[in-house]
């Protein structure tokens, strides 16, 4: 088994994976290797398919994740006394994150045609603005 894995992993990145027909359970080393190659493929594929708009969205997404993490770390360190304020800021990060991801899914070229037939990119952006405005209104109301 261990020999087999060394052979399979480089080939697997091409998507061919010709040899691996071991019906028995794969060892942990195999799994880890496969996992690693999976992540590599995905990452390289991701950077290839990035358009400027998507890049903008993704930078915003990273920024939101950072904000959320900072929020959370702060709470862990200091305590959560005005709990609603913490929740408001944290959920605004999370909410904006999922709204952005939704927008990203909707305006993405490969998905747009396949799943969101009835929603044009402009419509998606309008929806995004509508939902974001409501989200921010509620957040401001909640923070008090």
């Amino acid at each position: 088994m261990a020999k087999n894995t060394n052979v399979t992993t480089p080939a697997a990145t091409n998507g061919a994976s010709p040899i691996k027909k071991s019906t028995g359970r794969p060892s942990i080393a195999t799994t880890i290797n496969e996992l690693k190659s999976t992540i590599d493929t995905t990452l390289s594929n991701y950077f290839d398919s990035l358009t400027p708009k998507l890049k903008l969205i993704d930078i915003f997404l990273t920024f939101l994740v950072l904000l959320g993490v900072i929020n959370f770390v702060y709470v862990l360190l200091i305590g959560n006394f005005p709990f609603n304020a913490f929740l408001g800021s944290f959920i605004s990060c999370v909410g904006q994150f999922v709204l952005l991801v939704s927008l990203r899914l909707q305006i993405n070229e490969d998905n747009g045609q396949k799943f969101f037939k009835d929603i044009s990119p402009e419509r998606a952006f309008g929806d995004f603005i509508f939902a974001s405005l409501i989200l921010h209104f509620i957040v401001i109301h909640f923070i008090n």
Binding site: T31, L35, T38, T42, N45
Partner: peptide, 15 residues
């Protein structure tokens, strides 16, 4: 789902 669309199904299984 995103990963699945990028990599072959065999690898995806272990993932």
């Amino acid at each position: 789902d995103y990963v699945k669309s990028k990599v072959p199904s065999k690898q995806f299984k272990s993932f």
